[in-house]
Design a protein around this nucleic acid. Sequence first.
DNA 1: AGTGCAGGCCAC
DNA 2: AAACGTGGCCTGCACT
Length: 397
Amino acid sequence: MVPVLAQMERYGVKVDRDTLSRMSNAFAQKMAGLEAEIHEVVGHPFNVGSPKQLGEILFEEMGLEGGKKGKTGAYATGADVLEDLATEHTLPGLVLDWRQLSKLKSTYTDALQDHINKETGRVHTSYSITGASTGRLASTDPNLQNIPIRSEEGRRIREAFVAEEGKVLIALDYSQIELRLLAHIADLPALKQAFADGQDIHAMTASEMFDVPLDQMTPEIRRQAKAINFGVIYGISGFGLARNLRIPRAEAQGFIDRYFERFPGIRTYMDDTKAFAKEHGYVQTLFGRKIHTPEIASKGPRAGFAARAAINAPIQGTAADVIRRAMIRMPAAIEGMPAKMLLQVHDELLFEVDKGAEDDLINAARDVMENASDPVVKLDVKLTVDAGTGANWAQAH
DNA sequence: AGTGCAGGCCAC
DNA sequence: AAACGTGGCCTGCACT
């Protein structure tokens, strides 16, 4: 019996070189145009890809306000800084566009071509089972767990991940698994009920927090609640939420206080988890796997990082346990089917399946994934899995 | 020419 | 004192 991870590495995923090559050329053209425009705005040529040079141009040559230097004495020119500056000047927006294309070209359309195996025509990533402290896998050479999806431009890179002739790709992903596990672990009745009722979870949170009826929900209020939901999983702070939502810190802290009021289990969970970590030097997933937290006793800035990591670890770690249990059971569950499990992306499994066998695979794989915690852990919240099918990874989502 | 870090940015 | 968790890869740059 070949171990699951080794099987996946051997199968690999088919990647179409021509698609990547065409996209790469298109990116190069657009970058050249932007670069010329950027040099014109600045008045002289420079290396657009050098944050150091850009910072000096923005904050010294051009004299824009708000330049902040980091530890190394260089001005910060990250996307958040440039987005703020974009209201003052045309240059930052142009640089942001250039950087997006540069990232997509260098890291994806160019680098992925170099990873296509000559014999198989496929890309074979490597998975490290000890790659992340929480128990997640880590993918390297190439990392196939960070292929773009959020931006329209980037998402198209997934069109190069294709099924062979006569086959399709099928993506199955857990819906909101970490929030569901949070509802169970922190014992949040309102959240559990919302999942049981199949509600829009961020809208429900917004409704509870801001006293807005669901039928009067606005996208903006929902967006704020979504940011808070994610923040809670990560061990939220008023400062961090303020930065994310771009609102005053006092207002962000007010949101958090309100959240704790409406979902009191959250505060108990956070306090209990920190106390447990301090006493034992580790925290645990629902399955009893230990995640060591040696820095929990630190003083200074490290203390905050360690506390947030300890709060996040049981949630992220339990999700990692769940999908790993599913992966281990998968070969037996799909035995005899013309289907191969190709990739894992934390809450998603990607399969390549003969046309005609889609429904069988989805039924079998979904059943394994949704029940992966059985029989060791009985969850108060059902795990649900969304499925998509297509000729490429973009369509399968 | 190789090495390692910093800054930046992609994913969940 | 820093400021939301887990990762990996790319370029620039300083260094040997």
